[in-house]
Design a protein around this nucleic acid. Structure first.
Lengths: 206, 206
DNA sequence: GAGCATTCTCAACACTGTGTCGAAAAACAA
DNA sequence: TTGTTTTTCGACACAGTGTTGAGAATGCTC
């Protein structure tokens, strides 16, 4: 594991570590962590089970690393909207759609790290960082608009948390029941729901 | 396990089964299921580990039974509002407050059954029943109001799911961070959020 | 390319928790 | 009491995790 920015060429071990992460990501798309053994993960990356422990302390540690790798992407989805101001419905909708697409593929294990009741300390660390960061960014966005008198009154922190959770659960649900709702309808409903939640506004028909 | 309505006195075994459920409920308030062993549950009810299997097939089965026992209560919390019509803010708020109180005590294991990524089939059965029933009841309430032209337009099923999830996550969050928000403020914000979500209305200041 | 250090691999072991079985004890009915 | 059913538990088999230490492979330096 070379330091970030290190120039040294990736060693065989570095590649193995990436292979382990890649393999895990593929396996975890198919079934829940609880049903995946370390033996299986190691096997998928072409090493013996005990070799796994050279790279990661535990399954949880690998999961945390995997999640860490995905953080940037997830945040980036909503980036444009977070940077915008006021009732930018288009930016919000676009961000949500991007997120939904991601969730449709990686939903299973994203859900695990977000919602698992008792993840190890490593995962908890990453989760808190991500959720806190997410809430903070949303909160800043909302506070900005609150100052401009655009939002409903209500504690921005609470509103941000609600929006985050609403989004999260809607995507988790969409992953669990992919056939239940039309994708566009789902995103339109979610977009408008968030706008009503935060700004108290039902935007004009599209 | 006597049939419902059976007159026969509860045998020692029936009592033991209840003791097991009661003990589990207490233990599960303190720590996540993953950290509770069957040995511990059996011990808390005063029997040997292997004796546990006389009453329940697995930890998951006990959990399902425990949840089953709690279903009636949880539903009853929102009963008054579900039976009412239109924008009955008082009934909604009262129901939410009742639910919150319950979650503050039983939050840990309620959360587990709702959100665990990979519960056994027994729990899945109960979960689906509960979530589906909950969504269905909320949906009926919303459909009724939709017919009366009170709600925003949008698929009632989707709105119901969103409301259920918003409520669920807000309570889960309140359990996880009990100090984060004032109880009344939390419930007021949630109540208004739901009303805006479904009816597009920001009620008059209280 | 020889010598040396680092990186990597894995078989063998110890441990914890789950689930099964059958024999015995306790409770109940006739 | 006697026979039947219910309840209890010790002993076993098994699966998955995590540790250790020996040695193989790799890369670096001269």
């Amino acid at each position: 594991m070379p330091a970030i920015g290190s120039r040294r060429a990736p060693t065989k071990g570095d590649q193995r570590e990436q292979a382990l992460l890649d393999a895990a990501q593929v396996v975890l798309r198919q079934k829940p962590i609880g049903q995946v053994t370390i033996d299986e993960l190691a096997g998928a990356a072409g090493i013996a089970r005990s070799g796994f422990y050279f790279y990661f302390e535990s399954k949880q540690a690998l999961l945390a690393a995997l999640w860490d790798r995905a953080i940037g992407q997830t945040d980036a989805d909503m980036g444009e909207w977070l940077a915008s101001d006021g009732l930018d419905r288009a930016a919000l909708r676009a961000g949500l759609m991007l997120s939904l697409k991601r969730w449709k593929v990686e939903g299973r294990w994203l859900r695990e790290v977000f919602l698992a009741p008792d993840p190890g300390p490593e995962v908890m660390g990453v989760r808190e960082r991500l959720v806190d960061d997410g809430c903070t960014m949303f909160r800043h966005r909302i506070e900005r608009d609150a100052k401009a008198g655009l939002t409903v009154d209500g504690p921005p922190a609470l509103l941000a948390t609600m929006v985050i959770h609403l989004r999260l659960m809607t995507f988790a649900d969409a992953f669990a029941n992919p056939e239940a709702h039309d994708e566009d309808e789902l995103i339109d409903t979610l977009t408008d729901a968030i706008l009503r939640l935060v700004y108290g506004v039902t935007p004009a028909k599209r």
